[in-house]
Design a protein around this nucleic acid. Structure first.
Lengths: 193, 193
DNA sequence: AAATTTCTGGAACGAAAGTTCCGAAAAGAG
DNA sequence: CTCTTTTCGGAACTTTCGTTCCAGAAATTT
């Protein structure tokens, strides 16, 4: 019966995500979004309700994208240890070669917004759970294969790895250098031997 | 020749620090500060210039307080390994028993503000340097004493420990539970054996 | 091709942001 | 005790915030 949207809803959501990711929730104004999204104020409100809703949608989108990618990497891995190593390398690479040090949107949001918002806290916690489950499976498999030591149990190692990654993502926000990341990963990997 | 301040400047600065710590820079309004500090708007501006300056002063105060405490703990330690263990326990305890999950003011600020402000970024980086230096000395001493393994070099271990602590401080912001912290610390400590 | 629906851009809104200003009160110095 | 300096509280200012509204343009359906 009527006209269709002039813009791709998901595409624009990705742009919003990028802005929130870089500047945080409180650091992003609707004006920033209007200028960054390339659509008008009213289209924004019509499509995404309000700032808060747009933020939550951005966060969920981020989660779905990155978690999907991660699960993919881990499930189809012949060698869990190699995959863990590769994930660390990916994190380092992203931390070093982003023009703006964006870190991890989940970590940024966990620090900025989670303590003051239950909905956001839930998303962050669920995200961590997913990662923990994925790493847990990978490590168990690695231990069964004998390429990961049994010195620490799989759950503890999974949590430790996630913690290491989160720490790196914090360091990325203040622009640490490669030697720091390499040292951290070196020690983290040595816990698997 | 004249009147003295009705309030203790450092005491009020501590209150400002507490507010910024909990709510972040962008999440804190001047109204919040007026209500929380117990002094008037004009006294605030007279004494601390403006919001940004007050924030930086709060951050520097935090740094000076916590870094001093940490250096104290490490220098006067007979057993570096025991001190590192104790520091982890302190971090866990703070993460669990804060009414509001404040995490670490430095980590929070690193994530929220450091990417957009050179002055703040410098403080955060300097802070990390101090911690790294302290842990480095402690670990070297521990390795000389034979209570810490030489498998990884002292600098890598120091960086790894800081990273672990930062990660825990992130987790604290979304309210992780004790078993998670314990697992993380268990693995971190096993890297010293 | 006309009718109808929905998007679009920009103006406009009230509320809250950070900051400044000023008269009055308070407390040292002489 | 008086003078002078500085603090104090609150009103007031400008800007920016998030949000709403409206008239006109655009596109699909009949």
């Amino acid at each position: 019966m009527a006209r269709t949207k002039d813009f791709n809803e998901e595409e624009v959501l990705n742009k919003a995500l990028a802005i929130f990711w870089q500047k945080g929730y409180n650091g992003t104004s609707m004006q920033d979004l209007v200028e960054g999204l390339g659509i008008s104020r009213s289209s924004m409100y019509d499509t995404y309700t309000d700032k808060y809703t747009l933020f939550v949608k951005s966060l969920e989108r981020y989660r779905q994208q990155t978690a999907a990618e991660m699960l993919q990497m881990i499930k189809h891995a012949a060698s869990p240890k190699a995959i863990i190593k590769e994930i660390f390398q990916t994190v380092i690479h992203e931390s070093l070669f982003d023009k703006m040090p964006r870190g991890c949107f989940m970590v940024n949001t966990c620090v900025e917004t989670a303590p003051h918002d239950e909905v956001v806290a839930k998303i962050v916690q669920d995200n961590i759970k997913d990662y923990e489950a994925a790493f847990y499976e990978a490590i168990k498999k690695g231990q069964a294969l004998g390429e990961i030591s049994n010195r620490n149990d799989a759950r503890a190692l999974a949590r430790s790895i996630i913690n290491t990654i989160n720490g790196i993502r914090v360091a990325a926000r203040s622009g640490a250098d490669k030697t720091v990341y390499d040292d951290i990963v070196k020690v983290a990997l040595s816990a698997l031997d």
